[in-house]
Design a protein around this nucleic acid. Structure first.
Lengths: 220, 220
DNA sequence: CTATCATTCAATTATTCGATTGAATGATCT
DNA sequence: AGATCATTCAATCGAATAATTGAATGATAG
């Protein structure tokens, strides 16, 4: 062998890390964590051109993070493996813990107010069966339509102000979005609290909830 | 703000991933997972020049993965956070699962023989108290001297052939090394089995054992 | 069989990264 | 206070990467 197996292994691991080292690809993975999608849909969601999006997807495929299949005229991409979700989550954790910049950005989302600790998924599941909580899915309507936590209301964070009158001020609100890289729930909670609601974030988004093996309401 | 907070966040996460995207830096992190070290020691262990090593360490420091302090004339680096261990472990998992190349390299270490499933750390801990197992630390002697699993014998994989007569053929052998990126234990197990011993790998290396909160024999 | 259309390829440009060299820094120790 | 020595900086080169554009592919649908 020309190089040692040790170096060969490390280079493979480094390839996976490199695949995660572009913001565009992290965005794509976040989207694919919601549900499988065609290239065009991914391009639209992420604001990338279709060609650029395709290139990034192929880099992700080269290291096995995503897989594709054909459905009619479209090529549908999906995450190969749920473990990728864990990897992304911990990457976020490490970044949040080690990079001061990240903490500042997250605090900025709350306009300087102290955000309450997020509620964990076990606790939310228990509260849901009691009916003692309002669950708010603040993702765009099409993603909500794809799949959501049973019983959740859909109010996209961009239009939350129009829905405020529909919300009960006496019930605690739990907002969730796409997962650890998504800031919608942060923004929603900040907005709701400024308007006098008792709101918290869910720890993790829909993909994590699904990965726990919990029930999902979905169209397919 | 010039760019959206969402993009700003993703760029930070991507920075962390990029820091993990060079084999040299993964090697450094593996070393630092054993114990804190000075730049010169790291350079020697990894085969990098001191200057090059220093550069890589600074990239790791920039994203908060390592921290340094001064001790006498030396600058000592260490992992900032044990969570980095988890991140590295899952990165390896994902790579092993998704990249065919990785599986081939790992199989190549066993010379085509089927390697048995590794033993997990809980089980090893139980077997250790029973005394029904020989634990073999196959890392270099200096790393063993730094810290090791109590009761383990040290036989560096490179010199394992000289020690074969010291090993009991009737007791199961469990070999461990630096962790998921280290191939010493793979090699040792393959060699031992070829020579008629009943040997298995430990799942995870010394850093993972320590991270579980288990006892360590160490010099300091 | 052919037209269509989503996706991919190819080629370019600008940028970034890694290794290397030798010099500079700066805290320690005498 | 000054010598020493581990570490870091600065500058360079070669290589690799990301975004962009327009053209090519190739499977489906009619």
């Amino acid at each position: 062998m020309s190089i040692s197996p040790k170096m060969a292994l490390l280079e493979e691991y480094a390839l996976v890390a490199r695949a995660l080292s572009a913001p565009a690809r992290l965005m794509l993975l976040e989207q694919l964590a919601q549900s499988e999608r065609r290239v065009e849909a991914l391009a639209e969601k992420t604001g990338l051109t279709v060609a650029n999006c395709s290139q990034h997807l192929q880099q992700l495929r080269r290291v096995g993070l995503v897989t594709s299949r054909r459905d009619g005229k479209a090529i549908i991409y999906r995450l190969t493996d749920a473990r990728t979700l864990t990897l992304l989550g911990i990457l976020g954790d490490v970044a949040e813990r080690n990079l001061a910049q990240v903490g500042e950005i997250l605090r900025g989302l709350s306009n300087g107010e102290d955000a309450p600790e997020p509620i964990n998924r076990d606790e939310l599941a228990a509260r849901l069966t009691e009916g003692s909580v309002t669950v708010l899915d603040v993702r765009p309507a099409d993603e909500f339509a794809d799949a959501h936590i049973p019983g959740a209301l859909n109010m996209a964070v961009t239009e939350l102000d129009k829905f405020l009158t529909d919300l009960d001020r006496n019930t605690e609100i739990v907002a969730y979005c796409r997962g650890p890289y998504c800031i919608y729930a942060h923004q929603a909670v900040a907005f709701l609290r400024k308007n006098g609601f008792n709101a918290r974030r869910l720890d993790g988004g829909l993909p994590e909830w699904r990965e726990d093996g919990r029930a999902i309401r979905s169209t397919s």
